[in-house]
């Protein structure tokens, strides 16, 4: 069986996920045993007209990018949204809390409408159908490899459907709520090995909500620690402005 051809593309993003892939180090060489990377602009000059799997990083924030996305969709059998920007809008969607006029006036006071931008920065699924996603900002490279392997084998991507709290507990961390901090762990999808809370941070929600998040339970936690639910709403805006709105928490 010939190896599936994989192409990487980037839209509105920081390219940190592609960088994380380049950082796979020796594992990258092993991944190359089962796939052929045929296009990866950040790392190579080669380009390809055909590919089986398209991995897309970045949000959809300019109408003129729609055609390029549609072309990728037409060419690829499988489209993977890689990272928070492509998956849920990510940090780019933070600006969706302001109007386009406002953000343009702040950043380009002299000529606000000089540069084309949509009203909102949205996930890739706002422009084309997406078959699978790898969450995170940046992606967890082990999880990326797992999802690609599963898809190559014709299996489901195999992402966890439980929250970050599960992994955080398994790492034997003290709950950050005990320190009076606000954390999105109870409602955000695991798979990162609770990397932020395990390094002295809090969950900032880069991986998006779990399916059927128990928001009432989150409210109970906030009440238990005497915290205002607005704090959660506000930190959800960092990466999950679009999910936040969709769920009407």
């Amino acid at each position: 069986m010939s190896k599936p051809k994989v192409a990487f593309f980037d839209f509105t993003s920081c390219e940190g996920c592609q960088l994380a892939i380049l950082n796979l180090e020796v594992e990258l060489l092993e991944l190359l045993d089962i796939i052929d990377i045929v296009e990866f602009r950040e790392a190579m000059s080669e380009k390809s007209e055909t590919y089986d799997i398209a991995v897309i990083e970045g949000s959809f924030s300019r109408e003129k990018d729609r055609r390029r996305l549609e072309k990728i969709r037409e060419t690829a059998g499988v489209v993977i949204a890689m990272g928070a920007c492509a998956h849920i809008g990510g940090i780019n969607s933070l600006r969706n809390n302001q109007t386009r006029d406002e953000v343009q006036r702040i950043v380009y006071p002299d000529n606000p409408t000089l540069y084309e931008t949509n009203k909102k920065a949205l996930p890739i699924s706002a422009a084309i159908k997406v078959d699978a996603f790898v969450p995170g900002c940046p992606v967890n490279v082990g999880e990326f490899v797992k999802v690609v392997k599963n898809l190559v084998l014709g299996k489901a991507p195999g992402l966890p459907t439980y929250p970050v709290c599960v992994e955080c507990k398994m790492n034997e961390n003290t709950c950050v709520y005990e320190y009076g901090k606000t954390c999105l762990g109870p409602i955000v999808r695991a798979g990162c090995n609770a990397v932020c809370t395990s390094n002295g941070g809090v969950c900032i929600g880069c991986r998006g909500l779990i399916p059927n998040p128990n928001l009432n339970s989150q409210k109970d936690i906030m009440e238990k620690y005497g915290l205002n639910m607005n704090l959660i709403m506000d930190s959800m805006n960092l990466f999950m402005t679009e999910e936040n709105k969709a769920k009407e928490v």
């Binding site: 970045g58 990018d65 600006r95 702040i106 950043v107």
Partner: peptide
């Protein structure tokens, strides 16, 4: 590159 509006997001 697409504009990202970080200065506005930080506000």
């Amino acid at each position: 590159e697409a504009p990202r509006f970080f200065e506005a997001m930080l506000k």
